[in-house]
């Protein structure tokens, strides 16, 4: 190869290598935050429902701080190269979306929509070709939330809360119906989607146990 071409190649290469390093550093930061998030949220399994608002209050600022990470990553990524680099941060991003969606469920009982999730994490629409929340990542986060909710259904009962499982059951069934709309390939999403069925099964069993023991107070005016 002539020197000019080699030079050109090396320049391109160096730019990529440097960029990868920078993104990696940012992802490490982002990852620390999401690990704190999952650590905090792990406490819901031993937090009585009355104290959940306080727990959420500790989570919110960490969630807020994720905006810095998304902004930094968006600033690093060159135009049009979103899909080139996204694999580097998608695990962290999924964890952040998982936290946001779980918090939303705990607060309102509803599903955080994709645009709202992006907003919560400070992802701007105009970054679209550099940093965005893809449908795939959003769906992965929802599945993680369901995994956690099936545990929560079990632990709520242990803590004497018999309403939570019923709420979770309705919510998860709706979500599952949504997932059933999709045509999935034989990929990770498909495999995780299949595993959802076991979560639903577990939640159903809790609802069953609770119903049969007639321990649940009347729900008519609440749901």
């Amino acid at each position: 190869m002539d020197a000019q071409n080699l030079d050109h190649i090396n320049q391109l290469l160096d730019k990529d290598v440097e960029l990868r390093e920078k993104i990696k550093d940012q992802v490490t930061e982002f990852d620390k935050k999401t690990r704190t998030l999952t650590g905090l949220l792990n406490r819901i399994h031993s937090t009585p429902s009355s104290q959940v608002p306080e727990l959420i209050a500790t989570v919110t600022p960490v969630l807020e701080s994720c905006k810095e990470s998304t902004a930094a990553l968006a600033a690093l990524t060159p135009p049009n190269q979103f899909w080139r680099w996204k694999d580097m941060w998608s695990v962290s991003l999924r964890n952040a979306v998982f936290a946001a969606a779980l918090v939303e469920f705990l607060r309102s009982g509803g599903l955080l929509s994709l645009p709202r999730a992006a907003e919560t994490l400070g992802i701007k629409d105009e970054w679209r070709d550099r940093f965005a929340l893809s449908a795939e990542d959003y769906l992965h986060a929802l599945i993680s939330m369901v995994n956690e909710l099936s545990r929560l259904a079990v632990n709520s009962v242990t803590m004497g809360d018999f309403e939570q499982p019923l709420k979770i059951s309705t919510f998860v069934k709706d979500l599952f119906a949504g997932f059933a709309m999709l045509n999935l390939k034989n990929d990770t999403l498909r495999r995780r989607y299949d595993s959802l069925k076991y979560d639903i099964k577990k939640i159903e069993e809790v609802v069953y146990d609770v119903s049969l023991r007639k321990l649940a107070p009347s729900q008519s005016n609440k749901m």
Binding site: L166, Y208, V210, L212, A216, S218, Q219, S220
Partner: peptide, 19 residues
């Protein structure tokens, strides 16, 4: 665990969830 016919069990669960 319960000494009830399956349909009845189903009914009880359904009523609780739909309530």
């Amino acid at each position: 665990e319960y000494d009830l016919p399956p349909e009845l069990l189903d009914d009880i669960v359904e009523r609780t969830v739909l309530e």
